[in-house]
Structures are given as structure tokens and as C-alpha cells.
Amino acid sequence: MNIFRLAGDMTHLMSVLVLLLKIHTIKSCAGISLKTQELYALVFAARYLDIFTHYYSLYNTVMKLIFLGSSFSILWYMKRHKVVRRSYDKDQDTFRHHFLVLPCLVLALLINEKFTFKEVMWTFSIYLEAVAILPQLVLLQRTRNVDNLTGQYVFLLGAYRGLYIINWIYRYFAEPTYSTHWITWISGLLQTLLYADFFYYYINSVKNNVRLQLPA
């Protein structure tokens, strides 16, 4: 564990807490893509299959439980909660995210580190996470005014994998036994690059203290 990895995990945790805070306190999920939330729940379900079979550290296990629990409770809020679900704008959240799942699964079957069920599912989760934010980014461009909490949520979600990239660079030079992880590295890089224009507009909106508006 290094500071970049810890910062990445804390940033990821913050993004989830910001989203839960928004949904739980103001009972609204306006501007949040349910499809991205569904994709993320699938990412965690596929990635943490080994949560009960492969104990690595208490920290990892606790964090996996938090990410699994929060992502599924966000789904519950957005689909079942009588007040919250009314604020979900399904007419705007139209990205056909099913078209993301199958290609990622096929790619995981073709390109993986070991052809076992758990390893293919883990690889699938890596590919899927790289594109999971797309429905949310498309929704942001459609909804004119992005509220602060939604903007912070997306920013933190994008930043966490960026910090992981620094963690991988650090580990590559600092840990002699750390081997290459091309699948994780390339997917993580593509994932972070997808946020590039969002980061640009978000940082400008914070700097100029104006509402975040992505160009149509």
C-alpha cells in the first residue's frame, strides 16, 4: 500500500459518500445516471467475487464491502425509494449501456491473464469500469445546469483512477516484484482519459466560480 493507492481509494470512497449524501439528504437523484450506477454495481459484483475466498487484507475486504453495499443501495434508492425515484429523469438517461456490457465480456474472454471464471470476470470488471461513466457524461451534457454535488461526484470518481495510475507508476519503480499489468494499466488510462474534457470544464467552473455547464 502506498500513499497514491490510499489517496485513490479515499477519493473513490468520497465520490460514493457524496452521491449517497446527495440522494439521502435532499432525496433527489436529479442529474445522476441510473445506467452508470447499474454498470458500477456490475463492476463491483464481477470484481469482488473473491471477497470471501481470497482474503488479502482487512482494509481490502472492508473497502470491497463498502463499495458493494453503497453501489447496491444507490440502485435501491434510485429504483425503489418512493421519493428519490421520482427525481430520476429516465427520458434523459437514454445511453444504451447494454451495448457496453457485451463487448466488455467478449473482450474479457479474448484478452485476459488467465482463462478461469474468476479471472475472466475480474477482467470484465476492469474493461466495464473503463466505460461505465459514459452514460453519466452523456447525461451531464444533456442536463443544462449540473448541481455541485453531481459535479463533485463525477470529479472524484474520475480522479480516483487517475491516482491509481500514479500508484501503478510508483509500484513499478519501487517494488521489484511488481510485474506488468497491461490490462489494468491500459483500461485505467482510457478510463481516466474519458474524463479529460469534464475535468477541464469542471476545474474552470470551480476556478471562475460559475455553474458547471458542459458544451452540448
Binding site: H12, R47, N60
Partner: peptide, 10 residues
């Protein structure tokens, strides 16, 4: 195989 087992990140 060590790297497969070592999915030590989240």
C-alpha cells in the same frame, strides 16, 4: 500465476 493471484487492489 503470481500476478493473477495478486489482485491486491480495489
Amino acid at each position: 500465476d503470481s500476478k493473477v493471484e495478486k489482485h491486491d487492489e480495489l
